[in-house]
Design a protein around this nucleic acid. Sequence first.
RNA 1: GCGCCUGUAGCUCAGUGGAUAGAGCAUCGGCCUCCGAAGCCGAGGGUCGGAGGUUCGAAUCCUCUCAGGCGCGCCA
Length: 546
Amino acid sequence: MRRSATDMVRAALHAAVKDGVLTADALPEIIIEKPKKEEFGDFSTNIAMLLAPAEKKAPREIASLIAGRIKTLPEVERCEVAGPGFINMFLKRSYWTEVLEEIIRKGDGFGKSETGKDKTVQIEFVSANPTGPLHIGHGRGAAVGDSLSRILKAAGFKVVREYYINDAGRQVKTLGESVRLRMEELRGKEITIPENFYKGAYVKDIAREYLEKFPDGQGPDIQDYACSSMLSTIRKDLDDFGVAFDEWFSERSLDDTGLVASTIDELKGLGHVYESEGALWFRTTAFGDDKDRVLIKADGERTYFASDIAYHREKIKKGFSTLVNIWGADHHGYEGRIRAILKAFGHDDAVLKIIFIQLVALLRKGVPVAMGKREGEFVTLRQVMDEVGTDACRFFFLMRRADAHLDFDLELAKSQAPENPVYYVQYTHARIYSIIGFAREKGLTLKEHFDSNLLAKLDQKEEIAIIKHLSAFEETIEKSALHMEPHKITFYLMELAGLFHPYYNKTRVVTDDPVLTDARLLFCKAVGTVVANGLGLLGVSAPVKM
RNA sequence: GCGCCUGUAGCUCAGUGGAUAGAGCAUCGGCCUCCGAAGCCGAGGGUCGGAGGUUCGAAUCCUCUCAGGCGCGCCA
């Protein structure tokens, strides 16, 4: 395993302390960065500037004391002091090319780490009500949640993906009534649909389906039937979108097992509940919320929030290190009350991380696609998936930070033109496999073993730049996991593709020099492996041929 | 009115304390007898919404302010 730049700097600091030129009372955290400018080295650290006040020496003086010791390390080509006191490190080429051996050896395991060892994360996402099909916004949440799960797993976290099914309460009741009404219509009765009923075509489909299966109308409860029918549609959509869940948690089960009632009792026991105006209230303002919230309405019915308390109480009991909720941005008003739940039960609400997904603006050739939600004619995930394909769909959802608005242009996502970033990345993979296939036709196969002679052939500026980028894959996954930002992987891949294509255009892989050819083939294989691993984290395929 | 998110190139966006702020698209001009042109090369393009402050150093942190989006029910 190669030594990290941080370790190198640490070694130099210890040497300086041992030599008595630094006092080392309180060594600050070593911050390593990768300078944008080549002339500033492979790695750079500001440690000398941070040490200056305590050491009572000029930053540049301290820098040169440390730099002198970094220079003697075996991995280091040279080390310079620059500007106000930066220490710029230049590493030997062999340090970089070693990573190729690691990539080939680990294959699809390259990039994984144990950053999240012993930590467990529950991610609750999508959780769309089973009262209609998934729309495009749910799709974005699904892509983010699924990709984040994959990234966290790669970073060593134990991950449980959960879907909370709102199968209780007013909405599913309304769904059942909407279906029942459509059935009457199908039987030839004239109907008028009340304002708050679900009006989408899918309601009629369910009604028709029910009547076909049970012509005499003597089937299961219509509401139950409609709810589970809708749920299976949702599951199918998610399945086809490549999104799987470990747990499907039913809201209704909370009522059935009496957990809603017992959780309210528990809150009462803690003294956080009071009665007012005929209703039962939870004093969430005691825990930072804007206003208190009703648990049981004056009409005796429990609120949605009441079951949410029971639900989150159950989540807490399972003992995850982190709970992630992925919500549409229009739900941010709920954050305060949910955090109040955790605090009321004596938990640090820092375990809860809420990711808000901004809405998606659907465009076609730059023109907004009308979404008349009133009529129930919103654009579904299914429609978009079918039109542009799951790869493009997922990639587009992951091209932006989750909390940034997203313009999704259907024509762009579909186009096989260079301006479509999905294909730009996938093409890298396909192209590499094409090169390897070409080599194979010439009787060349990938070498099993690396030696320094082989790796020394990779001396082109572009090759080294790409290899450095490959080296950063693991830490990119770590950062993406810790910050819970899947889009970092997308950007990483677009950058890698942007490095490889120009290289390919300029450099022949299969040449007359057999050793050089072997080296470049291995190099290409390594790039292809990282592209495939990265796309895998996004849930996007890495085609061998396009 | 209060709260949250956003404001960076013509457009869409990266960049959460470092050195001269980046990419894609769009625009303009070039490259296929040679491993895939779904590709490449070149050019132009910026008061980081604004004003203060903290810091050796700010797009980044703090305060104020302007603009856009969303949320503020005994709804779900």
